[in-house]
């Protein structure tokens, strides 16, 4: 297996209505890395993520997942190794019970039933949602839905976890729990988010996107220290890195 697990080269994409969302994106992500993708609203983060599981086909450039370029033939394998957690969990939880939802992927993989059972239980306990097993997903709280959505992806045993704004709609405790859970996962992680504090906690590397281009790619701390650049990208230094106004006034 090659060392590069996700490779995006010169990726361009325009929506059918002519909006150019990506204008030549390049990056390369390695095994076990945890990478944040940040940028202003409309910068093209979601569009980029949709290329990683082959939902959108590049107009130019290419995407490689693992050892293979992403093409029609390798689409199935790529989708198995890239676990995608959507921004709105309602889009992802379509089965009548939490159990069925988490079992949906493994059953489609044709796994034996005992194995499916094991995987479902393991995935649900990993996100602390085993007690929700028999509940219908539409009556769960936002945080519970999110947990189940993540479990439904984990049960496929993906190599790469791709998440679009995982902390929107979560209360501070739910957010904290999610961050801790994500911390414990061994997967390669790619997280698009506006939550820079989460980035600071989880991702050692950050890719900044602006108007469909990568404008910075490097260690998270280095990028977050450059205030002028952050402002230019419609971002703000995470609170934790800012000098506390109250303390500094006192001192």
């Amino acid at each position: 297996m090659s060392h590069h697990i996700v490779e995006v080269a010169d990726l361009c994409y325009a929506y059918p209505d002519g909006t150019a969302a990506l204008n030549g994106v390049n990056f390369c992500i390695h095994h076990g890395e945890s990478v944040a993708i940040v940028g202003a609203n409309g910068a093209g983060k979601s569009t980029l993520l949709l290329h990683l599981n082959g939902y959108l086909t590049p107009m130019q450039g290419r995407v490689r997942i693992g050892d293979y370029p992403l093409t029609k033939e390798t689409l199935q394998d790529a989708r198995r190794s890239v676990g995608m957690v959507f921004q709105d969990p309602d889009d992802q939880l379509f089965m009548p019970t939490v159990y069925d939802d988490v079992a949906f992927g493994p059953l489609n993989l044709g796994l034996p039933l005992d194995e499916v059972d094991l995987r479902v239980e393991a995935a649900l306990s990993q996100v602390g949602a085993l007690h929700l097993k028999d509940r219908p997903p539409y009556h769960l709280s936002g945080g519970e839905k999110r947990a189940v959505a993540i479990a439904s992806v984990l049960s496929m045993s993906p190599d790469i976890l791709v998440m679009d704004e995982p902390t929107t709609g979560l209360d501070p405790r739910g957010r904290r729990m999610l961050i801790e859970q994500l911390h414990s996962f061994q997967h390669t992680k790619i997280i698009a988010t506006h939550d820079l504090d989460l980035v600071l906690d989880l991702c050692e590397r950050t890719i900044v996107i602006r108007e469909g281009r990568v404008t910075a790619d490097g260690p998270t701390l280095d990028i977050f220290r450059d205030e002028a650049f952050l402002a230019e990208s419609h971002l703000e230094k995470p609170l934790r890195l800012q000098a506390c106004p109250i303390c500094s006034r006192k001192g």
Binding site: V82, M84, Q92, D100, A103, F104, L107, N108, M156
Partner: peptide
């Protein structure tokens, strides 16, 4: 739009037209 997203979510998890349940 939602239907499209749901379809995508199903495809991501290996959906091939048959719902399998335990």
């Amino acid at each position: 739009e939602r239907a499209q997203r749901i379809h995508l979510a199903m495809q991501c998890r290996g959906f091939d037209g048959e719902i399998r349940m335990r």
